[in-house]
Computed example of a mutant assay.
Amino acid sequence: MPIDVDQNQRREDVAAAAARLIATRGMGAVTFRNLAGALLCSTTSISHYFANRQEILVETYKFVVQRARGRRTRPGADGRAMLASIDHILPLSDEEFDDWVVWLCFWTEALFNPDLAAVQRLYSRQQRGLIEDNLRALGCAPESAHDLSQKIMTTIYGIAVQAVFDPEAWTPDAQRAALHDVMKPLSSLLAAAGGARPEG
């Protein structure tokens, strides 16, 4: 990590390296030594920005969530954009698959780590809230949008976990079909908003 890189960029570089380690070798691979090796720097360079491993893990979780959000569209009144946005919460691409591996590792760790559990709760609620905002933008009543967003999130979690462990059976097409089946109640709203109806 060159000295002219600002502090936020250095922290992001460490988080990105940690995410790669977790996706390929598991949570235990996140050590100062492994990170230094991945970034071709000294462990002191990393400890200058992170006091301990816990801080690195929290920053890594935030980094992966923000990276995932960057692949999605903002809430809007277009039905097709709504479907595309929700689709890309699933592990459809290699990067999305890696993100889910990282999240699953974090969820296990969060069971016994209050700091990570708090971060997980926050981002899970925010994600559900974004879906609810999309549904309201399509014309769903507030209560219906809330209930359906819960069902969609539950479905996404179930599909993603199966896809991570059995990617041959849970291809991107199979994932989309399963998710769109749950979203069939939105068909009329999607059509009215100019979007395609869910398949399946």
Rank of each mutant, 00 (worst) to 15 (best):
A178N: 10
G139A: 09
N113P: 02
L122Q: 12
A160R: 10
L104P: 06
S124V: 07
R121F: 01
E109G: 01
V161C: 08
C140Q: 14
T108F: 02
E143N: 14
S149F: 08
I131K: 05
D99Y: 04
C140N: 07
A160D: 09
P172Y: 02
Y157C: 13
G139N: 10
A177Y: 06
L138W: 02
V102A: 01
L148V: 03
L130Q: 07
T171I: 06
D94P: 07
M153Y: 11
M153I: 12
D87E: 09
L116C: 11
A145C: 13
L111N: 07
P91K: 00
E132P: 09
M153W: 12
D115H: 14
L111Q: 03
L135H: 02
A178T: 15
L135R: 00
A141P: 00
S93M: 02
A84M: 08
K151N: 09
T154C: 15
L104F: 06
A118W: 10
R128Y: 03
I86S: 00
A137Y: 07
P172M: 04
C140A: 12
G139E: 01
Q162I: 00
L130F: 11
E168Q: 15
K151T: 08
L135K: 03
M153E: 14
Y123L: 03
E143G: 07
H146S: 13
W100R: 05
V101P: 02
S93K: 06
Q150V: 15
D147M: 11
G139V: 05
E109Y: 01
G139H: 12
S85A: 04
W107S: 05
D115F: 05
Q120S: 11
V101D: 04
A137C: 11
Y157P: 05
S144T: 13
G139P: 04
G158T: 13
E109P: 04
D173C: 00
A118H: 08
L92N: 08
Q162V: 06
A141G: 15
A169Q: 11
Q127Y: 09
M153L: 12
I159Y: 11
I159H: 10
E109H: 06
D166R: 11
D94Q: 08
P114L: 05
G129F: 14
R125L: 09
L122H: 13
A117C: 09
D133G: 08
A110L: 04
A177H: 06
N134R: 10
